[in-house]
C-alpha cells in the first residue's frame, strides 16, 4: 500500500471532445481531397451544361435530375476510406500511445471510432447539401424545374446508412489488423474467386448462396442502396437488410475494439 495521493482520470466528455477534434485533424487530408473532388465535379457539370446550351441552344439540356439511392455511391466510397485516416499511423502494433492514456482501452477505442463516424455523418450532410446546390444551380442555369427532392425520402436516408455501413466494415479491418488492406483485398478477391469457381465447377447453389451475400434480398448491396432495377432503385428489403448489416458490423467493431492486443 502507499500514502501517495492518486491523480484523477479525465472526464469522458473531455476525452470525447478532444478525440472529435483530433480525429478531425487526422482526416484533414481526406477532407481536402473530398472538397476538392466536389468542387471539380461542380465545375465540370456547370461548364458542360453551359457549353451544351451554347452548342445546342434548342436542345432540352437538363430537365432537372432526381436524387436516388445510387447517388450515395461517391460518399459511400469516401466512408470506406475514412477509417484509414481516423487510425492514421495507429495500426494495432503501433497503437500503444492510444492505449497508455488513462482511459479504459475498449471504450477509448469506441469513442475514437464514434468520433470518426460523426465526421462521416458531417461529410454525408455536406455531400447531400452539395447535391442540392448542384441541382439548384443547374435549374437556375437551364430554367428547368428543380426536381432533386422528388424521389422517396428513404433514398436520402440511405446516404447516411450506406456510409455508416461502409465506415463500420472498414473500421473492423483497420481497428483489428495491422494489415487492413490485405484483409479487405483478400476477402474481396477470395469472394469473387469462390463465386467464379463454384459457377465453373457446376455448383450453382453454392454460387447463388455466395452471390446473395452481395446482391441477395438481405445482401450488402441491398443494405446499402436498396434493390437496383433497370431505371433506378427500389426499397425492396432495405428496411431489414440495412439494420442487419449495421448491427452485425457494429458487433464486429465492438469485438475488435475490446480485444486485448499487445
Amino acid at each position: 500500500m502507499t500514502s501517495t495521493q492518486l491523480h484523477p482520470t479525465p472526464d469522458t466528455r473531455v476525452v470525447a471532445a478532444e478525440q472529435f477534434r483530433a480525429v478531425g485533424l487526422a482526416v484533414r487530408t481526406e477532407a481536402y481531397f473530398y472538397i476538392g473532388a466536389l468542387l471539380a465535379i461542380a465545375i465540370l457539370v456547370f461548364a458542360s451544361t453551359i457549353r451544351m446550351m451554347h452548342v445546342h441552344p434548342s436542345s432540352n439540356v437538363n430537365n432537372g435530375f432526381v436524387y436516388g439511392a445510387g447517388g450515395a455511391v461517391p460518399i459511400f466510397a469516401m466512408a470506406l476510406l475514412i477509417p484509414f485516416g481516423v487510425w492514421r499511423s495507429e495500426d494495432p502494433s503501433r497503437r500503444s500511445y492510444h492505449w497508455t492514456m488513462p482511459v479504459a482501452r475498449g471504450p477509448h477505442t469506441i469513442i475514437k471510432f464514434l468520433c470518426g463516424w460523426a465526421w462521416v455523418m458531417i461529410a454525408t450532410v455536406v455531400y447531400l447539401v452539395f447535391v442540392g446546390i448542384l441541382a439548384a444551380g443547374l435549374s437556375l442555369i437551364t430554367g428547368a424545374p428543380d426536381r432533386v427532392a422528388a424521389g422517396p425520402g428513404w433514398e436520402w436516408v440511405a446516404a447516411f446508412t450506406a456510409t455508416t455501413i461502409g465506415y463500420l466494415l472498414t473500421s473492423v479491418a483497420v481497428i483489428g489488423s495491422d494489415h487492413a488492406w490485405r484483409w479487405i483485398g483478400g476477402l474481396f478477391i477470395a469472394f469473387w474467386v469462390l463465386v467464379g469457381v463454384s459457377s465453373s465447377f457446376g455448383l450453382p447453389d453454392m454460387s447463388l448462396a455466395l452471390q446473395s451475400i452481395w446482391n441477395g434480398a438481405y445482401g450488402l448491396k441491398t443494405a446499402l442502396f436498396g434493390l437496383e432495377y433497370r431505371r433506378g432503385w427500389t426499397m425492396g428489403s432495405w428496411p431489414v437488410a440495412m439494420p442487419l448489416w449495421i448491427i452485425g458490423s457494429a458487433i464486429a467493431v465492438a469485438i475488435v475494439s475490446y480485444r486485448h492486443r499487445e
Partner: peptide
Amino acid sequence: FGLNCRDRAPEVRANIGYVPERPDWGYGWM
C-alpha cells in the same frame, strides 16, 4: 499504489508518466 494494474488500469495510468523505448510513440502526423 495498491491498484491492480489490470482491473484498474485507467486509474493506474492516470498516475504514471511513461517514456517508451520506441521513438514513434504518439501521433506522427500531429
